[in-house]
């Protein structure tokens, strides 16, 4: 492989690696090494300059390739954990007691973010990760509510308000788990599409 070919190969591999952001580093590095080896073999087997150019032209589109691998390996534990922490933060901020009266819209906005993000975690990580995200965020939201209620002197909680808050929080569990399950049912990335 000459310098120009090497540069083209490395450029392609960098794009694939970047598209696999969030995946486990060991899996990602292994995939890149294997693709590099494949490109080297393909170029060595190409007898003419035209054939070598064809090797690069026919390489799979990086994002599509990354989707196939993500469907197999999912995202790394660190990536999922960071996302779940972010979901928890959104859920905590969605507790209405944190805000002055009539600031419900802000709490609702944070709740919408929490629901969307929990759903995203489920979609990216699958049903187990989605369930973990849903349970963590719902628990964090309910605990925050309880703590603020205990510390607050001037808030009187009606039983049905408390129940409604818990039920609404459960939406996070349903969305997180549901999106993970739905992902399994939806036709996702199909590495056999180009057969």
């Amino acid at each position: 492989m000459n310098d120009a070919e090497n540069n083209m190969a490395e450029l392609y591999l960098a794009r694939v690696k970047s598209a696999m952001f969030g995946m486990d580093k060991t899996a990602r590095d292994g995939i890149i090494s294997e693709l590099r080896s494949h490109i080297e073999d393909s170029l060595a087997d190409a007898p003419t300059q035209e054939a070598k150019e064809k090797v690069f032209a026919e390489l799979e589109e990086p994002r599509k390739l990354a989707r196939s691998y993500k469907a197999i390996y999912g995202y790394s534990r660190t990536f999922n954990t960071l996302l779940i922490i972010d979901c928890i933060a959104m859920a905590v901020l969605s507790v209405p007691l944190l805000y002055p009266v009539n600031w419900d819209i802000l709490a609702s906005l944070f709740f919408a973010f929490a629901v969307a993000e929990t759903g995203l975690v489920g979609y990216l990580g699958g049903d187990k990760v989605g369930l973990a995200a849903g349970v963590s965020t719902a628990t964090a939201r309910i605990l925050t509510f309880i703590i603020i209620y205990i510390l607050s002197d001037n808030y009187v909680l009606r039983a049905d308000d408390g129940l409604a808050f818990v039920i609404v929080s459960m939406v996070l569990v349903i969305v997180g788990y549901g999106m993970g399950k739905a992902k399994e049912k939806w036709p996702g990335s199909d590495e056999l599409a180009d057969l």
Partner: peptide, 18 residues
Amino acid sequence: YIDLKEGTLYPALHRLEK
């Protein structure tokens, strides 16, 4: 008849390995 691209083969191999 079966002329695979690398984008088809390697994920299939990884899936079988997993």
